[in-house]
């Protein structure tokens, strides 16, 4: 009995066809599983390991290496603030500090309602449109504190799914 949705399992089937070695699908499978479950649960890890005929240890080794993969829940909206050099020069740290205030959490914190989590991240490739924030996979660029508030409000009120 799979813990993943039929759609995701279909996606896994398709992924496994792409590579001569099943293990190659590990990172995408983990990321897509996380997208569906919010984080990599022990059950998800077990199932993916079995599916790839790899040990759970091998999966844990991989999870630990990649910064986007997590084994603890994040908020429904994971706010990732870039403070790397280009964003730094355009106020990335102010944006990050503001997020802390607004959301009432520290780096890696999750709001009590589980809606938001906050993370300071490395360069997300929005240097020429800095400062930038990624919420889940959505980019929000050329931000100011005021624009950021609007963005967060949109997520809070369901304006962005």
């Amino acid at each position: 009995m799979s813990i993943f949705s039929p759609q995701l399992n279909t996606r896994f089937d398709e992924l496994l066809k792409r590579y001569p070695v099943p293990r190659s699908a590990m990172v995408p499978m983990l990321l897509y599983a996380q997208d569906e479950l919010g984080y990599l649960t022990p059950e998800a890890i077990r199932e993916i390991a079995a599916r790839l005929d790899e040990s759970e240890l091998a999966v844990h080794e991989v999870i630990g290496y990649y910064s986007m993969l997590r084994t603890k829940p994040a908020g429904r909206f994971h706010v990732q603030v870039c403070t790397n050099i280009s964003c730094l020069l355009r106020g990335g740290e102010e944006i990050f500090e503001h997020c802390k205030q607004r959301l009432g959490v520290n780096n890696h914190g999750v709001t009590p309602d589980g809606l938001f989590s906050l993370e300071e991240v490395e360069c997300i490739g929005a240097c020429s449109w800095a400062p930038a924030v990624q919420v889940n996979y959505d980019f929000h660029e050329n931000l100011t504190v005021a624009k950021l508030d609007q963005v967060l409000d949109k997520y809070r009120t369901g304006g962005v799914q």
Binding site: R18, V21, R23, S24, V27, P28, L31, E61, S67, L69
Partner: peptide, 23 residues
């Protein structure tokens, strides 16, 4: 093929390791 957060995977042999499902 998607990565999952690692600058080092821009190094070509690290990228290949990653593409093979490893660290």
């Amino acid at each position: 093929h998607t990565g999952a957060g690692a600058y080092e995977c821009g190094e070509e042999s690290a990228l290949m390791e990653s593409l093979e499902g490893k660290r």
